[in-house]
Structures are given as C-alpha cells and as structure tokens.
Simulated scan of single mutants.
Amino acid sequence: MSFATGHSRALIQGLIFFSVLAGASLQAQFYGKAVFEVSTAEEFVAAVGSDRTIKLNSGLLVPSDSKSREHPHVSWSKRGQNRLAVIRNVRNLRIMASTSLKSALQSGPGHSLVLGFENVVNLELRGLRITAAEGARSGNLLSFTGCTNILLRGCELQGERSRAVEIRRCARFSARETKFLGCAYGVVSVGDSRNLLFRQSNFIGNRGEVGLQLHRTYDARFTDCELRGNRFSKAVFDVPDSAKIRWVGGKIEQPAGQTFCHQTGAVVVEKKEAD
C-alpha cells in the first residue's frame, strides 16, 4: 500500500470519527448533558424538565400511578378513577428506554391516555412501547397540543381500545421506524398542524371508521411506510381542508372495497425515486 493511499484512508477515518464526535456533541447540546435514570412513576414525574434525557430503567412504568401533585411542568386532569399526566412548557426533552431494556409506558386502568404534551419544544420519545392498560376506556395513547419539533423514533404504540396519537396545533411532527399496531379507533388524528413526516413506519392490524384523520393539515408525507391488515369502515385517509398530503414508496395492502381516501385524489401516491 502506498503512502498516499494510507494517508487518504487515515484522513477519511479521521473525518468519520470527527463527524461522529460532532454529532454526539450537537445531540448533547440539543438535549443537555443531564441524564435522569428512573424506575418508578414518582421518579419519572420528578425528573420532568428542560434540557435533559430521562432514561427508563424499568420494564413497565405507569405515569398516572405517581402520587405527586405539585410540579411546575406536570399538570393533572381527572378522568374517571385516573389522574392523567400532561407535561407542559418544557424544551429539549428526551424520554427513552434503557439501552438494555425496551421499556413500556402504560396508561392507568381507567383511561387509555398514557401522556399528554402541551407547549413543548424539541421532544424525542425513543425506543418505547406505549400501551393502554387492559380494560382502559377509549381515548388517545399520546396527545400533543401546541408543540414544535416532536420525534417518535423506534417506538411501538398499541391500543386495543384506543387511538394511537392526537396532534393539535403542532408543527414539525415526525415518526421514524415506529409501529402503530392494533388500535381500535383509528391511528392518528391531526388538526390545524403542519409539516408532518412518517418515515419507515408501519400501520398494521388497526381498525375503526378512519385510520388517518388529517383536518386542516398542511404538508404531511409518508415515506417508505407500510399499510397492512387494517380494516377501516370509511377510509384509510380523511383529509378535509388539507393540502400536500403524499404517500411516497412503501407498501399499501388493504381489503377489497376499502376506500383509500375519503376525498378522491387528495392523497398523492408516488413511487420513490431510485437513489
């Protein structure tokens, strides 16, 4: 091997190493260096705040089990026997599973809402299973209101008596490599929001009247996603007063006779261009 070749390889390796370090540095700067490892609902609620990562070290955590009532960034609403936790007014927050354990966030027995988020900027949920408790009343597993820059990465949302996600007045919501499984009342409900991206995410075995409701939504894209085994009585998509809704690449399987979009032609299906 010549000196020039060896020098070039060393230079390339150095650039790769530098880019990895730079990426890690930017990520740490974005979420802050503080890491809170939690195993109980009390610890989880106490850890909520800005510029931090909350790492779940338990297999199952139910936020509504927390007895805490006073927290500057967590409000509580009463639904039946449950107190529902809503995280509010924080920035740069990541909630993730332990690297050695795919943790689950679960609702309490009375209602299917696991967590709500209001006026949150820069939020990432990573590697989490999010489920409703057995027998929980219908609702949304997650709700987002007035939030900006939301990312679900590598998560799995499953709700036998619920919808997966409700999004209201949000901008830049993204779900990547995330599964939406077995939801009974549709999958996603969006209103008055813009810039949504679902990438390499799967919608499997869901049911209800409509799968994806996008009302007054501008610019939503589904790239390399999969629709399979769903049964929606009205349509997969319902997109009134919405624009720039695109399905790019991926895979679509639906039962014979099932309507793809309630508004004919409102969702543009495109083949993905070769890289």
Score class of each variant (00 low, 15 high):
F3T: 14
S8V: 15
R9M: 13
I12L: 15
L15H: 04
I16K: 10
I16H: 08
F17H: 07
F17D: 13
F17C: 09
S19H: 06
S19D: 06
L21K: 07
G23L: 12
S25Y: 06
Q27P: 00
A28W: 07
A28S: 13
A28V: 14
F30P: 02
F30H: 14
F30R: 15
K33W: 12
V38Y: 01
S39P: 01
E43V: 00
A47D: 05
G49C: 04
S50C: 01
S50Y: 01
D51K: 11
D51I: 10
D51M: 13
T53W: 01
K55G: 02
L60T: 13
V62H: 01
V62E: 04
S64W: 00
D65W: 08
K67D: 13
S68D: 12
S68L: 11
E70N: 14
E70P: 06
H73S: 10
V74R: 01
V74S: 02
S75D: 10
S75Q: 11
W76S: 14
K78G: 10
R79C: 10
G80F: 07
G80E: 11
L84M: 09
L84V: 15
V86S: 14
V86L: 09
N89K: 12
R91Y: 04
N92Y: 00
N92H: 03
S98Q: 03
L101M: 11
K102I: 08
K102C: 06
K102D: 09
A104S: 13
A104D: 03
Q106M: 14
G108C: 04
P109N: 03
G110K: 01
G110I: 01
L113H: 07
G116N: 08
F117V: 08
V120S: 01
V120F: 02
N122M: 10
L128M: 04
L128C: 07
A132G: 10
A132T: 03
R137A: 15
L141R: 05
F144S: 02
N149S: 13
R153Y: 12
E156N: 10
E156A: 11
L157K: 06
Q158P: 02
R163L: 02
R163I: 03
A164T: 02
E166W: 13
R168T: 14
R172N: 15
S174M: 14
E177G: 07
K179R: 10
C183H: 05
A184D: 06
Y185F: 14
G186E: 07
G186F: 02
S189P: 08
V190A: 12
S193Y: 04
S193Q: 05
S193R: 03
N195K: 13
L197R: 09
R199S: 13
S201H: 05
S201C: 05
F203I: 04
N206G: 11
N206E: 04
G208C: 00
V210Q: 06
V210F: 11
L212F: 05
Q213P: 03
L214W: 05
H215V: 15
H215Q: 15
T223F: 10
T223G: 05
D224V: 07
C225T: 06
C225R: 02
C225E: 02
G229E: 12
S233I: 12
S233L: 09
V236F: 12
P240D: 04
A243L: 10
R246W: 05
R246I: 13
W247P: 09
W247A: 11
K251Y: 07
P255H: 01
A256N: 06
G257Y: 03
F260E: 02
C261Q: 08
H262C: 07
T264P: 08
T264C: 08
A266F: 02
V269A: 00
K272E: 15
K272I: 11
D275E: 08
